[in-house]
Structures are given as structure tokens and as C-alpha cells.
Design a binder for these strands. Structure first.
Lengths: 216, 216
DNA sequence: GGGATGTGACTTTCGGGTAAGTTACCATGA
DNA sequence: TCATGGTAACTTACCCGAAAGTCACATCCC
């Protein structure tokens, strides 16, 4: 008697387990990315997926489990793409542009993946942080590799300098992808062309002049 | 009878209103920046400040009011500094380096300010978003100005290209400041010197070669 | 009919916010 | 100098809503 059925139907809808799981994962990825991983509620995910909250717990055990699955899947896909382009044999700016281009193509039909993996609130304690750490390490190592080559060419082998430039490059990459995601309707090819123009313009400027007025 | 005093003393501690307000503002700024604006709880702020939660509501009305005060103050200080260095008359990379240097000096004794103003979770709806929007606009306009000069020199006046490069430059600035905040013990002068080295190394590379294998 | 799929209604926890009362400081009058 | 009362500063103990997580039950397909 407790489980009356006034509004919605209860009982199975004939959706296979694997299919439902993939659907939840996709919807959850979008919501986590849109609201921020720490702020999204599983009630909203359930609503957007057209199912009830307990079903999500039935499939993923906990909110943390769901987030972990989303983040793990997205990170794996993204890192694989970065590794692919890094292994193509190009160096320097050419490698950078190839990596960007590959990412634009990859994210074409799941733009939320990038936002999810780079969510700032993931860094907090929790299972998701542990899941994403190794992927972040891999990406950092690849960036360190590429940036190190460039810096060596420029005659600067200071380890702290390389570390700082890795942070900068990672951030440049993120901002270009972010800008692209914020301007839908631009094809990957167009965006890659834009990146080439920007790189050419910026790197064509030459070294900066002497600066006066700095502290110290 | 209700207001018993089992553990801590109740009643005034003789702290003047202005002093207490400044103390709460400073502690709240740190906590908001550390946990993320959307995730920090006023209970933790109260605990770290050594006072009770209702006192904060007495001073700032609501959590939103407290956050707004923190963000507004921090944004004002930071934007003023950026405007100061932007008005110094330098252009291009020299202006960029001066702005960075000024920011390092400014943030020396309140490093949390940067993280707070650039908190990603501030963008969500709420009073704090409205408070920070005009400051963000100002900074964007200044960056747009500087980047536009550079791009014009390089012969690229495409508005979308400029917009994208503004995003990139903002992000580069943020990553350099962030790296510095993550490596305490480095003086502003040392960090500025590092920035000069990095800029010199990167911009000395020259334009990228032709790339093959891009999409499209 | 039995297992897989699915749900309404519930409990629990946590954090924002409030009501009501307590204590210290300080001015005033004698 | 000392009582006295008013006010500013502060706290305990509570309320309330939102979101995580659970339970018993309902439905469908073979």
C-alpha cells in the first residue's frame, strides 16, 4: 500500500542495463560539467535523464561513484587523444597545434568532457580526486616534455622556469579550448586556423625590449 | 535561563565594531579562497575567526553579504593595481611585465585575494556575480586594449582573433600568478625576473613552421 | 512466477539563518 | 567614589530546507 502510483508509472521500462548505464553517464557528465562537479545534485541528473534518483544509486552506488565513473571515463578519452598527438613525432609549436587540433575534433560531440576534467572543484578531497590524479600527471609529463624541448632550444634549462612554463602552456591550451567551447558554430578546422594565426602573430613579435620600473 | 554558559563565555569581548569587521573580512577571504566561494561554510569562517556564527550574520546580514563584501573589496584592490600599471604608458610586452610585477608586489601579504577574485564558482547566479562583473569587464577592456595593440602590430585585426587572444593572455597572467602563489618563498623581484626570462625565451623562437596533418 | 528493472516515500545529515538571552563597557548622578 | 541603567557586543540553542542515501514495494518480460 505504501508504494502507490498516483502520478508516474513504476516498474521496468525495458531498457537494458548497459544502455541505461551509458545514458546516465552521459547525462551526469553534462550536468557535472555545467554546474561544477561539487555543486551538481543527483536529483537534477535523475530528472534530466527522465528516471528516478534511486535508479542512479542502483547503478553507481553513490554520488561519488557516479562522479568517479564520469571523470575517469572522460579523463581516459582525453589523455588518450593527447598521447596520440604527442606520439606523432612533431616538436615545438607544430606539436602544440596538432594537439589542439586533435582536441577540437575529439570534443566536437561531447564538449562537456573538457569542462568536467578541468573542473576546479575536483581537486578537493574525495575519490574523484584520486581517480583524476594519474591522468593529470600524464598530461603534465607530456607538457613538461614538449615545453622542455622548446626551452632547451631557447637556451634556458632552469627547472623552475620549465615548471612555470608548463603551467602557462597548460593554461593557454585550456583557454583556447575554452574559448572554442564558448563560441559554438566554429568548426575544428576553423579554430585550428585561428590558432595558427595567433601563434604566428604572437611569435613573430620577437623578444621583448628592456623593461624599466620593475620591483627589486 | 535558556542562554546558559557551560563552556565558553558569552557576552562582549570588548572588540570594537570596525576592528571585528575587518578581522571577519580577512578570515572569510582566506576561507572563501581556500575552499572555493561556493563551498566554504560560514561555520568554518566563524570557527577560524574564534567567534560564533550569529555574530557574522549580525555584521554582514547573510552569507551572500559576506561573500559580496569580500569579493568586492578584493576586486577593487586588484583592479586598481591593474589600472595603475596600465596607465604607466608602456605598451606590448613591457606593459605586460609591469602589470605582472605590480601584481606580485600587491599580493605579497594577501595572496588569497587573487584566488578569490578568480574563483570559477563566482560566475554562478547571485549577488557576488553582479558585484564582480563590472570589475571583470574593466580588466577585460584593459586586456583587450593591450592585446589589440599587439595584434595590430602583427597585422591581424580580426575581432574574433583578438577576443581569443584576450582569453589566452588573461589565462597566461593567471597561471603565472598562480604558479607564484604555489611556490611561496619566491620574491616578487625574482618572479618578475623569471617572467622576463620566459617571455624572452618564448618570443625569441620566431614564427612556427608550416604544419601538416591538421583537420579540414 | 521469478528475476531484472524501476519508483514513491522515507530517514539522515549538513549548512544557512534566527530568537532570545548574557555579559561587558560606559555615561550619568549622587 | 560608587550605584545604576542603557546599549553594544556576543553566545547558546534552536528552526528549516535541500540534498544524499535507503527501503519496501510495483511492474514488465520470459
Amino acid at each position: 500500500m505504501t508504494g502507490r502510483t498516483p502520478g508516474g508509472r513504476t516498474g521496468t521500462k525495458g531498457v537494458a542495463r548497459a544502455e541505461r548505464e551509458a545514458q546516465i553517464l552521459a547525462v551526469a557528465g553534462e550536468v557535472f560539467a555545467e554546474r561544477g562537479a561539487a555543486l551538481a545534485s543527483v536529483a537534477e541528473i535523475a530528472e534530466r535523464a527522465g528516471i528516478s534518483k534511486p535508479l542512479i544509486y542502483n547503478y553507481f552506488g553513490s554520488r561519488e561513484g557516479l562522479l568517479t565513473a564520469c571523470v575517469g571515463h572522460a579523463a581516459e578519452v582525453i589523455v588518450a587523444e593527447i598521447e596520440r598527438t604527442a606520439g606523432l613525432g612533431e616538436v615545438g609549436l607544430a606539436r602544440a597545434l596538432l594537439t589542439l587540433d586533435g582536441m577540437f575534433v575529439l570534443l566536437g560531440d561531447r564538449p562537456w568532457m573538457w569542462r568536467l576534467v578541468n573542473d576546479a572543484t575536483l581537486g578537493a578531497v574525495g575519490e574523484a580526486a584520486e581517480v583524476i590524479a594519474p591522468y593529470r600527471s600524464k598530461v603534465d609529463a607530456l607538457a613538461h616534455d614538449g615545453v622542455g624541448q622548446l626551452m632547451h632550444l631557447a637556451g634556458d634549462d632552469d627547472e623552475a622556469d620549465v615548471s612555470a612554463l608548463v603551467a602557462v602552456w597548460t593554461s593557454v591550451f585550456d583557454s583556447l579550448v575554452g574559448w572554442w567551447l564558448d563560441h559554438p558554430g566554429t568548426s575544428p578546422a576553423e579554430m585550428s586556423a585561428r590558432c595558427v594565426r595567433l601563434f604566428t602573430a604572437v611569435f613573430g613579435l620577437g623578444a621583448p625590449p628592456e623593461i624599466e620600473g620593475l620591483s627589486g
